[in-house]
Design a protein around this nucleic acid. Sequence first.
DNA 1: TATTGTTATACTCTATAACTATA
DNA 2: TATAGTTATAGAGTATAACAATA
Lengths: 150, 150
Amino acid sequence: MPKTTLPESSGAHDEDVIDALVQAAFVTMAVLNRIGAENDLSLTQLRVLGILRDRRPRMAALADHLGLEKSTMTGLIARAEQRGLVARAPSAEDGRAVDVFLTRTGARLVERLYRQVQDALAPLTDRLNAAEQQRLRTLLRRMLAPGDEH
Amino acid sequence: MPKTTLPESSGAHDEDVIDALVQAAFVTMAVLNRIGAENDLSLTQLRVLGILRDRRPRMAALADHLGLEKSTMTGLIARAEQRGLVARAPSAEDGRAVDVFLTRTGARLVERLYRQVQDALAPLTDRLNAAEQQRLRTLLRRMLAPGDEH
DNA sequence: TATTGTTATACTCTATAACTATA
DNA sequence: TATAGTTATAGAGTATAACAATA
C-alpha cells in the first residue's frame, strides 16, 4: 500500500502510479501557475484563453467546458474583456446567446503563452530521451483516451 | 510543431509529450478538485492536509512549501482550525514560531480523502495493464527526479 | 415554460503593507 | 536588525439565488 497521494506527503515511500501521476500534475500546474502569474493571469484565465485559441463558444459552452457556473463566466470574461484579450458579440442564431472570442491582442498573447509553457516544461521532459518521451506520451494518451475504459 | 498545449485546445493534433503531460495534469487536478469540493475543501486546503499528514511544520515552512505568503497561510490555517481539522501550538524552540498539525478529526479525514483520490483515479490508470502502469510510474518519476537534470 | 446571460451577494484564496513579539 | 506570525485591506475566483430577455 502506498502511503502518499497528496503531493507533499514526503519522499521515500513505495509510490504507485497514481501517486506519481498526482505529483506530476502538481508540478505541471505549478509551472502553468507561475507562467500565468508572470502574465497577470490566473490558471482559469489561462484555460479560457486556451479554449478560445481555436473556438468561438457561447458563454454557456465555455462554462460547461470549464465546469464553472454561468455567473462565474460572466465575471471571468468581463475582466478579460476589460484587458482587451477577448470580446463578446451577440449570437447570430440565438438572440439570448453571446459568443466569446479572442481579440488580436489576445491571440498574440496565447501564442506567447504557448511558447512559454513549452520552454518551461521542456527541462522536465528532456530528462527522458526521445524514445522514452514517445512512450510516455503514448501511455498518457491511452490513459486519457475518451470513451471505452479498458 | 504541436498546436495544442492548453488543455482544451481541441482534439486531433500531433501532440507532443508536453501536451499530453499538461492534459493529464488538468484531468488529474479536476478529479482532486471535485473530491475537495465534495468535502468542502479547496485544492489548497487539500494540499495543506496532505503536507500535515506526516509533518508538523511551522507556518513559515508551510507557506514555503506551498509557495504562498505567510499572511495567506494565516487565513488558510485559521479556517481549517475553526473546522477542527488542524491545530496550532507555539513552538518549543522559538518563541516566535507556531507549529501546525492535524487533529484526530483531520487525520481521519486525510485518510478518507486519500482513499477517495485512489478510487477516483483508478479508472484512468486501469486503462493500462500492470506492466504499462509500472512503465508510466518509472517515466514520471525519472522526469520529476530532483537534482541532476539529464 | 425553459434557457441564456447578468446582477447581487457572500465566502475563499491570494498578495501587499503595516504591525507585534521574539531572536 | 532580522525573522515569525497576524491584521488590514483589496482584488480575483467561485457558487447560489433572483432576475430580464428570448426561445
